[in-house]
Design a protein around this nucleic acid. Structure first.
Lengths: 225, 225
DNA sequence: AAAATTGTATGACAAATATCATATTTTGTT
DNA sequence: AACAAAATATGATATTTGTCATACAATTTT
């Protein structure tokens, strides 16, 4: 059993407010998981009964739309927590969480977290602020979906991906999304997404290297948005 | 100065957790306002420094998009609170709040609310759950914006308006939105909104009576979504 | 009451996007 | 290596949606 004290999640998330005692208690009740790329951490509608700490790997939070397409609502990085909203609302998950890379996560049962939540004011304040950030992000995201064209959303998303997850040595986006997943992020048909990528490739905004994507001129891309 | 004890907002919002003492303190520090239809309660970017209780009238929460159009994110009814996210994040408002009808609201300064927030666990839990609901709503809304057609979104919005705000004696929607505002809710151009309304009118899903809208067959409308 | 302004409606057209078909490439499996 | 399956790519076409122009109606101002 690993201690939680030095964990990346502890350093970056709401958990930074926990004291040594609380961390020890958490270390005792946590369960560690390895999740392979493509596997779910939990699915929409599932009762999660706790929160997940993302130690390593990125996952997508998505929701199945009535038209059968999977809309990606958010990507979650190492150091972040999952399932906070469900924990507070005491409701099943509203979104599915699926690994985009091999992941390492820890599960902490609801009962434990809720104890910290009521005992440790700084911790509950941190959780709350995170949810408030999510709400602001979701509102902004919604406005983009409603008001921007698919091309604009694609350009924005590409910049977001480079800024948030960085690039490989060859300059391509580090985070690897299938075309279908990228389409699911920007909210369009896979073919439309592929077509627009080709177009950006031809006009030298980006370069397509196999399935990988390299941003050639971020400023030019920004001007599209 | 009115007491807060019997106020509709107290009965329906997070404030129901406040005790007599806290209600008295609140009654002393609150400011009451009358807002005329079309006037803002606060604007995007403004530092609000407190929360607003909606005693009467409906308002829209909207955000100006880069393309110059106003996207309506949410409608807020009597009994609800405004500005909770800003208060917790300690940030300026992310959305503008503008009256759709003549309104009565009360303002309670941040300092006061934050005191309740730290002292009264049930109150803070209520606020948190409200924000969690908003987050879930925003995520779902975002998926709709990304995945549904304008026609589907229009049908959904009309049903939502009738279910939430009811109808007049003649069967028309009680809540009065201009075509531009309705377009702002569903995220489309005003002309497209008008055109689709005409179409729904011709195919007898709805009836247009002047600027008013009457839903003729809610089930038929539902099938569009 | 007349004029001006604003909101609603509709036509014509252009642009954006989705859908379906099919080809090609990549990946995984035997 | 050969095959099957999945992902990517592209063409053809239909549909949806936006834009611009203009007309008409309702509301407000003078």
């Amino acid at each position: 059993m690993n201690k939680c004290e030095q964990c990346i999640v502890r350093q970056f998330s709401s958990l930074k407010a926990l004291n040594k005692d609380e961390l020890l208690r958490m270390a005792e009740c946590k369960t560690s998981y390895t999740i392979k790329k493509g596997e779910p951490i939990f699915e929409e509608g599932e009762v999660t009964n706790g929160i997940y700490c993302i130690k390593d790997g990125v996952c997508k939070l998505s929701k199945l739309s009535d038209n059968g397409k999977d809309q990606i609502v958010k990507l979650v990085k190492p150091g972040e927590l999952l399932g906070q909203r469900s924990m507070i609302s005491d409701e099943p998950a509203n979104l599915s969480a699926v690994a985009l890379e091999d992941m390492e996560v820890c599960f902490i049962p609801r009962s434990e977290v809720m104890q910290f939540f009521t005992q440790n004011n700084q911790f509950s304040m941190n959780v709350m602020k995170t949810i408030c950030e999510d709400l602001k992000g979701a509102d902004d995201h919604m406005v983009n979906m409603a008001q921007k064209t698919v091309r604009q959303r694609l350009a924005e998303t590409l910049i977001y991906l480079e800024d948030t997850f960085g690039k490989n040595e060859d300059g391509t986006l580090r985070i690897q999304l299938s075309r279908e997943e990228l389409a699911g992020m920007i909210g369009t048909a896979t073919e439309s997404c592929i077509r627009l990528l080709s177009e950006l490739n031809k006009s030298e905004y980006i370069e397509l290297i196999g399935k990988k994507i390299k941003l050639l001129d971020k400023n030019k891309l920004k001007r599209l948005t």
